[in-house]
């Protein structure tokens, strides 16, 4: 639901990075989205494509990698994928776990035109 504000933050972040590093035109923005980030990739892309028009990022596409939920057990240290929304350790059944991956909304890289 807040994909527009996320798209806006991505746009602003990348624009300032382009200016700071004096980068050539950006062709793609790499993103890592957690499966439990509450962001719908299609909706994010739609919003980004709307707001990028008339900016230096008009030619940039979002490249989204969705990463699954992964957790570590605080009791037995077992690491495991969280499946079917069961937030408990499959090895020792402890519910004291830490989600290690699957909630991120990260920019990972930019692709820019190679001037050489």
């Amino acid at each position: 639901m807040h994909e527009l504000s996320i798209a806006n933050t991505i746009l602003t972040t990348v624009l300032s990075e382009v200016e700071r590093q004096n980068l050539p035109p950006v062709t793609a923005v790499g993103l890592r989205l957690g499966a439990m980030s509450d962001i719908v990739p299609d909706s994010l892309t739609f919003n980004f494509d709307v707001i990028k028009a008339d900016t230096p990022l008009a030619g940039a596409e979002l490249e989204i990698e969705v990463v699954p939920l992964h957790a570590a057990c605080l009791a037995c240290k077992h690491e495991f994928p969280v499946e079917d929304l069961v937030f408990a350790c499959p090895a020792c059944e402890s519910g004291s776990i830490r989600v290690e991956q699957g909630q991120e909304i990260d920019i990972t890289h930019l692709s820019v035109e190679d001037e050489a």
Binding site: T9, T13, I105, I107, H109, L110, V112
Partner: peptide, 15 residues
């Protein structure tokens, strides 16, 4: 060919 530039940044880092 495009060139890739690493940029590890949390989108909500400012928040």
């Amino acid at each position: 060919m495009d060139k890739q530039i690493a940029l590890e940044r949390k989108v909500l880092s400012e928040n």
